[in-house]
Design a protein around this nucleic acid. Structure first.
Length: 202
DNA sequence: TAATGGATGTTCT
DNA sequence: GAACATCCATTAT
């Protein structure tokens, strides 16, 4: 499998989000290799997206979203959780894709250990759980996934059935159907109320 | 099946 | 000082 390069990320964010579903996320930490298939993502943009951190412009927190595509944007939220995003768009144009869930492939035992749970379908389900399972925190903020040894993405098969819905946990920007997930996957977060319309990819 | 609230801390007004 | 791209257990329907 080939690592995704700069040009993959330097595109319109919802398109990148769609193409990231099915990719393989690789995390190397403390001598362990942890990998998983991306099964759920959300797109966030800039001035045209009130739900985005970058909506109100460049700040000390959001500068990564305005920079070069293909970097990790990690932020701390709700006093407890870290969330992992991958930056998108041309430099200067803010955008990022939030990775919400993966289906664990390699290093499953290590992920279960880090989370303190037994259920594989829940170990990396939801953005906060995912970062905990993979040992991702603010030290990885700004990491370049095109060159990093610790965190990167591999091209995956294109998924057959991809579901589309509004984004979870946001109060504004509800008209944008920018949450994308593998329709049949039990590793996806949310519940029936978060199920949107189904869309096939050719 | 859906709504509620507590833990917890950074960012922005 | 309020809001927040969360999670989970608890409570209400």
């Amino acid at each position: 499998m080939a690592r995704l390069g700069r040009s993959f990320y330097s595109r319109y964010t919802p398109d990148v989000a769609r193409d990231l579903v099915g990719a393989t996320l690789v995390r190397r930490v403390e001598g362990k290799v942890l990998t998983g298939r991306v099964v759920e993502v959300e797109a966030y943009r800039g001035a045209d997206d009130p739900a985005s951190h970058a909506y109100r412009g460049l700040t000390k927190r959001t500068w990564v979203m305005f920079g070069e595509a293909g970097h990790a944007y990690v932020y701390f939220t709700m006093g407890m959780h870290y969330c992992l995003n991958i930056t998108t768009e041309e430099e200067g144009e803010p955008g990022a894709v939030l990775i919400r869930a993966i289906e664990p492939i390699e290093g499953i035992e290590e992920m279960l250990l880090r989370r303190g749970v037994q259920d594989v379908t829940r170990v990396a389900r939801g953005p906060g759980n995912l970062t905990r399972a993979l040992g991702i925190d603010l030290r990885l903020n700004g990491e370049d996934l095109v060159t990093s040894r610790e965190l990167y993405l591999l091209r995956g098969r294109r998924e057959e059935e991809i579901g589309v819905s509004t984004r979870i946990g946001v109060s504004s920007g509800r008209e944008m159907m920018w949450r994308l997930y593998v329709e049949a996957s039990p590793f996806v977060s949310g519940n029936r109320s978060h199920r949107g319309t189904s869309a096939s990819t050719g």
